[in-house]
Write a protein that binds this DNA or RNA. Sequence first.
DNA 1: CTACTATTGATAATGTTTTTCAATTATAGG
DNA 2: CCTATAATTGAAAAACATTATCAATAGTAG
Lengths: 140, 140
Amino acid sequence: MVTRTDHWLEKLKSTDGRVTDARRAVVDVIVSSPRPLTPVEIFDAARKKHLHLGLVSVYRTLEKLEELRLIQRVHQEQGCQAFLRAGVGHQHLLLCERCGQAVLFDGDDLESLFSRISQQTGFEIKDHWLQVSGVCAECK
Amino acid sequence: MVTRTDHWLEKLKSTDGRVTDARRAVVDVIVSSPRPLTPVEIFDAARKKHLHLGLVSVYRTLEKLEELRLIQRVHQEQGCQAFLRAGVGHQHLLLCERCGQAVLFDGDDLESLFSRISQQTGFEIKDHWLQVSGVCAECK
DNA sequence: CTACTATTGATAATGTTTTTCAATTATAGG
DNA sequence: CCTATAATTGAAAAACATTATCAATAGTAG
Ligand SMILES: [Mn+2]
Ligand SMILES: [Mn+2]
Ligand SMILES: [Zn+2]
Ligand SMILES: [Zn+2]
């Protein structure tokens, strides 16, 4: 059975990267987390799998994974240094305010909003960024 | 003529705060900036008005102004430590990718999107966050 | 003018991310 | 399997960003 961890490591390998214990541990932690994690959180969790992992390697792996678009940075009030697996295609993030659980959704249609803003401001709209928060079914 | 700077300083005063040269300088810089600024950028600009301003006072003033909801933190790819005057009521941000100019717009209607997401995920939607970027009329 | 207390800036402390570097290790090719 | 090569590692130091401490200063009410 090919896990998502394996898939990510393959992606790394196919871009001149190597598969190491440090990376395996970091990827494993991110892949199996239902919520965004900070570098230190990832470090603490991954150290249980790879004892003398360095925090530097977490940062370096995050950088690689972000380049490969396998993870995304999550912006929150308390700070913006948390990372989460990336969605496929065009998706946005829905976060539970209580437990932090993240869900990716798609199918937003903002075109009419954008064309109106474009007319009013003279801007040519290139990109957008939407994040929704609330309380998940379990936390309600 | 009552400037926006004066208005902000009055707000500060009315919540047990004092009007000082340091604050006047910081507020002036933010109020007259068309784009989000980082603490250090604010520091550099404000120092021209108040020579021996300390960077600490910039941080402290930012904290106060954020509490009073006169400014908002702006999240961007390159980092999330930039601040901008806050909008009135429910508004969202439109940023120019070239010059950084910020425009606040309102009148987004995301209710139907939210009710659909809510049904699909079981979440109770509480809040959302939308930011749009593009190229402004001058930069086109 | 005075008393009171919020605010200041210098300094130190803390926290986060990046750089440097020599040692180690994954991997391709023989 | 062995070897050469270059990517990766972790320790340590450096760089950067933010926050806490504290004695001196200055805004404000009265
Ligand atoms: Mn979208
Ligand atoms: Mn809205
Ligand atoms: Zn929850
Ligand atoms: Zn522009």
